[in-house]
């Protein structure tokens, strides 16, 4: 720590004590990049499949009310299962084993609840008179879906996407225990080696990313909400 006047200066003491993780990050920069990249590529893969799958399921159950209870039942059960168990169960299935497929599948299942619930809630929040007026003016069911229900539900759906992205980013860290080389690995190895710098580096990095994602998606959420729908949100 020559940069700060050797180990005698007060700042160096403070630095060693509390900010050691910063020099850790600088030292292991290449690894940080690699882990971050792996982290995001996993989250993106999961989100791609989740969007396609769970938005469809959400739309489906908002139309076929009977399926809704089944879907929410499954989603609730999945939610009670700890993330580490879900990862663990998948890797013991021979076809999947250790690796990305198991990690991605488990995370996609986790995404079900927040995504499906918000799509359903959003679609159902469109009040009856608006649908009735749309029908009465001669909109086809598809036009009602794409011009009324989805645009009106979009803020709620997007809020679900935001929650899911943040949640998946967080849970993905746990996938390090089934072989994913992502930001969770610093925490994983840090605990094993009892290295405070490593643990804090991992925790801080992944926290910053999660908070940042939440913040950015929140801004986007506001931007894409029709001004005509914003009033109700202001009141909350």
């Amino acid at each position: 720590m020559e940069l700060f006047g050797g180990s005698t200066g007060w700042f160096a003491g403070f630095y060693d004590e509390y900010l050691g993780f910063v020099s850790f990050i600088i030292r292991r920069w290449d690894q940080v990049i690699e882990y971050t990249f792996n982290h995001f590529s996993l989250v993106l893969t999961v989100m791609f499949f989740s969007l396609v799958l769970w938005i469809s399921v959400g739309l489906l159950i908002s139309r076929y009310e009977k399926l809704a209870n089944t879907a929410f039942g499954i989603g609730n059960i999945l939610f009670v299962i700890p993330s580490i168990s879900l990862f663990g169960i998948f890797i013991t299935i021979p076809m999947l084993g250790l690796g990305r497929t198991s990690a991605a599948l488990a995370l996609i299942l986790y995404a079900m609840m927040p995504m499906v619930r918000n799509v359903y809630r959003g679609i159902k929040s469109v009040e009856w008179p608006i649908i009735e007026a749309g029908r009465g003016m001669g909109m086809s069911p598809l036009q009602i879906l794409f011009q009324i229900q989805i645009p009106m539900a979009w803020p709620v759906i997007f809020a679900g996407i935001r929650v899911t992205v943040v949640m998946i980013t967080g849970i993905a860290t746990v996938a390090t225990y089934i072989g994913e080389r992502n930001l969770g690995r610093f925490i994983h190895h840090g605990i094993a080696r009892e290295s405070a710098d490593m643990i804090i580096a991992g925790a801080v990095l992944v926290s910053i990313i999660a908070v940042l994602l939440d913040f950015i998606l929140g801004k986007i959420e506001f931007k894409i909400t029709s001004p005509g729908l914003r009033r109700e949100q202001d009141q909350n």
Binding site: E127, P129, I130, I131, A133, R135, G136, M137, M152
Partner: peptide, 17 residues
């Protein structure tokens, strides 16, 4: 229905438009 005007009590204006 497109050839018939339709007005309801709850109006049903599209709030996002």
């Amino acid at each position: 229905r497109r050839e018939i005007g339709y007005v309801i009590q709850q109006i049903g204006l599209m709030p996002h438009r």
